[in-house]
Amino acid sequence: MTSSSEDPVRQVLSDAMAHLYSAALRAAVLLDVAEHLADGPRDAADLAGEIGAHGPSLHRLLRFLAGRGVFREDEDGRFHLTPAGDVLRADAPRTVRTAVLGMTSDLCLLPATGLAAALRDGGTAFEHRFGRPLFEYLAENPEAGDEFNQAMVDISTAEGDAILAVYDFPGSGVVVDVGGGHGALLLSVLRAHPGLRGVLLDQDAVVAGHLLGQLGGDDRWEVVAGDFFDSVPPGDLLVLKNVLHDWDDEQCARILGNCRRALRPGGRVLVVDAVIPPGNEPDFSKLLDMSMLTLLPGRERTEPQFRDLFDRAGLRLTRVVRTAGVFSLIEAVPG
């Protein structure tokens, strides 16, 4: 967030060069800088020798990221790991290492250069750059698909505790993770609520990498390969995390309609997505919305827009619960 008193030229030029922050984060992850600082502060020359980098260049990178709070340089020229830097470590409790690599890859960055063309015709910048929709591209390029899915696991794991802390998941019944990827959120829910059963629904190539086996011999879960545009397995709580923001309103209404038909009596639909607040203040949801505009036909939505989507599918929005993290929980029941 820039100060209202900041020179507008400096503000705009700084924003135009913000891609260098993404590049610096990616370089720090690829060089395992955070891992090497986990045991204590190091000077750049010493660290460079250990990771195989050019010392003076590494110092410049660390100094730049220290200006963004990722690292901290002390009076002796040694660099310390901060909480923001710690989440770059692969074994950090809330690691976003793989998510950072995914978000700073060519797959995400290159389409952004075609945003103006997408704005003219209403398409996505990704299709302008790669010639096909994102999910079609990922299906045809398994390595890119694996990286994308692992990035989603990172995000789900990092946000899981914030979701569990504020929502009253039922003590029994069936939770269906609709379009749940590898099932990171469902895994957390089942661990926290032993009376629940879980069903993970996603495409065959995606659920092949599911995480639910980490529950060991627990027989409370099932993996279903399918398409939520066709049907959804029946359940008492149907969760859609980071699903609706991928699709346009017509597609969302179709997904939600299938969810409405799959609900058992007394059941609920729980959408986990960012909710755009009113006003001009910066908000992470608006940044995510630009990512959607670049990559996919969907969008981040306001609360009234979610209400309209539910109405179209025969559902009624009952409440919006904000978490301490990025996302909100938007609950609906049959209307």
Rank of each mutant, 00 (worst) to 15 (best):
S22T: 13
G226A: 04
P194R: 06
V224Y: 10
E281R: 06
G235C: 09
P41R: 01
L13F: 06
A48I: 11
F284L: 07
R307T: 15
L296D: 06
R299P: 04
L295W: 10
F229Q: 11
A27Q: 13
P41A: 10
D74H: 03
S14Y: 13
E140M: 05
P93S: 01
L270E: 00
T98H: 11
H245Q: 05
E281M: 00
S172F: 01
K241A: 08
P297M: 00
D219N: 14
S105A: 14
L110R: 13
T2V: 10
D230Y: 13
A117D: 03
S156D: 12
R312N: 03
F130D: 05
G52E: 00
T95F: 07
S22R: 09
V33T: 01
E140K: 09
V166F: 09
D219G: 15
Y21H: 14
P297T: 00
A332G: 00
F284G: 12
A92W: 05
L58R: 00
H193K: 07
A45P: 03
V333I: 02
E35K: 14
C108Y: 11
R301S: 03
L20A: 15
G179Q: 05
G114K: 06
Q305C: 00
L30M: 11
V326K: 14
D177Q: 10
S328H: 07
G123N: 12
R264K: 11
L186K: 02
N141H: 15
T124I: 12
A44I: 08
D46H: 05
D249H: 09
R78V: 09
L329I: 12
Q214F: 12
L244A: 03
R307K: 15
A44E: 02
R319P: 03
D39V: 09
L62N: 04
V272W: 02
